[in-house]
C-alpha cells in the first residue's frame, strides 16, 4: 500500500511541484495519473520509490516511511520505468540490460536466465536479445526498459508513459499484462497522456493540475467530466466526445467504450426506425 500524506515538494531551483497531495493506493489497484505537462505527475510517482523525498508531509510504502529506507531497498519492491528509455538503458545487449537488476538483487544464475527469457518473450524482444538497445527503435527501447523492470517481478510497478511509441497491438499486450498483474494483487501505477488507452483499461484515474489532485475516481466518470478535463488539459476519449455532441438525445454521460456506445446507439436507431 502507498500512503501519501499532505506532501509538498520543492525542487532546488525553487519550483514547487507538489502542493499538498494526499492519496492512498491499495494493493492490487490499477491507477492512471493524468494531467497537463508540469502538473507534478512524474514528481509524485518519483516519491513512491524514494527517488524524491517530500519537502513537507510524508510518503509510506507498506507502512515504511520513504525517508527511513534506502532507495535500494525500496527498488526491490517498487519497479520504476522512466518516461524516456534512454535515461535508463546502458548495457551492450538487451539481454544484459534485463539481467542487470536481477544480478544486483543476487538472484541465482538459473533463475536470471529464466526470468530474462520470460521478459524478452513477454515484450516480443527475443529476436533482439543479442542486439544493443541503442540499435533498436524508440518503441522497442521503451519495451527493453519495461522488460528490465518486469523481470524482477516487483510488487508495485510504476510506468511513466508506457504507451509512447507503441502500436495498437503492443498496447493491447500491455493492457492484458496489467490486468494479469491486478489478479496477482500487484499494484500498477501509470502516468499517461494516452486517453484512448485509459478508456480501454478503465482504471482508477487521479487527475492533477498545478501540483494538486483535482479529481479522483473511475475512468468512465472522470474522462467524461468535461469541466475537470479541460482544467487538466485532457481531451475526452473520442466515444465520449461523440456523445457530448448530441446533448438533446440525453444519452448516458459516462460512456467511453466503443461496444457500450454501440449498444446504446443501436437501441436508439432501431426504436427510431419503428
Amino acid at each position: 500500500m502507498i500512503e501519501v500524506e499532505d506532501v509538498y515538494f520543492r525542487y532546488p531551483n525553487g519550483v514547487e511541484a507538489l502542493k499538498g497531495v494526499s492519496l492512498t493506493i491499495k494493493n492490487g489497484e490499477f491507477v492512471a495519473i493524468m494531467g497537463q505537462n508540469g502538473a507534478g505527475k512524474t514528481t509524485l510517482v518519483k516519491h513512491f520509490n524514494g527517488l524524491l523525498k517530500p519537502t513537507k508531509g510524508r510518503v509510506l510504502v507498506d507502512e515504511a516511511e520513504t525517508t527511513k529506507v534506502s532507495v535500494a531497498t525500496l527498488a526491490r519492491k517498487v519497479g520504476f520505468v522512466f518516461q524516456n528509455p534512454d535515461h535508463q538503458l546502458f548495457c551492450e545487449t538487451a539481454e544484459e540490460e534485463i539481467a542487470f537488476a536481477l544480478k544486483n538483487f543476487g538472484f541465482k544464475e538459473t533463475i536470471i536466465k529464466r526470468r530474462v527469457q520470460w521478459a524478452l518473450n513477454l515484450l516480443g524482444l527475443t529476436q533482439y536479445k543479442k542486439i544493443s538497445p541503442f540499435m533498436l527503435s524508440g518503441g522497442e527501447r521503451k519495451r527493453v526498459a519495461l522488460a528490465s523492470v518486469l523481470a524482477w517481478n516487483p510488487k508495485i510497478l510504476i510506468l511513466d508513459e508506457p504507451t509512447i511509441g507503441q502500436d495498437y497491438q503492443q498496447k493491447e499486450k500491455l493492457r492484458q499484462f496489467i490486468l494479469q498483474m491486478k489478479t496477482q494483487r500487484k499494484t500498477v501505477i501509470i502516468v499517461t497522456h494516452d486517453v484512448e488507452f485509459v478508456a480501454e483499461c478503465n482504471p482508477r484515474v487521479v487527475l492533477m493540475r498545478e501540483g494538486k489532485i483535482v479529481a479522483d475516481g473511475e475512468a468512465k466518470e472522470i474522462l467524461t467530466n468535461e469541466e475537470v478535463l479541460t482544467q487538466a488539459s485532457i481531451v475526452p476519449p473520442q466515444i465520449a466526445q461523440i456523445f457530448m455532441q448530441m446533448p438533446s438525445l440525453q444519452l448516458p454521460k459516462n460512456i467511453i467504450d466503443v461496444y457500450e456506445a454501440r449498444e446504446i446507439l443501436l437501441k436508439m436507431l432501431r426504436s427510431d426506425a419503428k
Binding site: D167, Y168, Q169, Q170, K171, E172, E196, A199, P237, Q238, I239, Q241, I242, V258, Y259, A261, R262, L265, L266, L269
Partner: peptide, 17 residues
C-alpha cells in the same frame, strides 16, 4: 494493428450491424 480512431471503429461496427 494500427490504432484506428475510435470514431472510425464505431462507424464500421454500426455499419456491420
Amino acid at each position: 494493428g494500427i490504432g484506428i480512431p475510435k470514431a472510425t471503429r464505431l462507424y464500421h461496427i454500426l455499419k456491420k450491424d
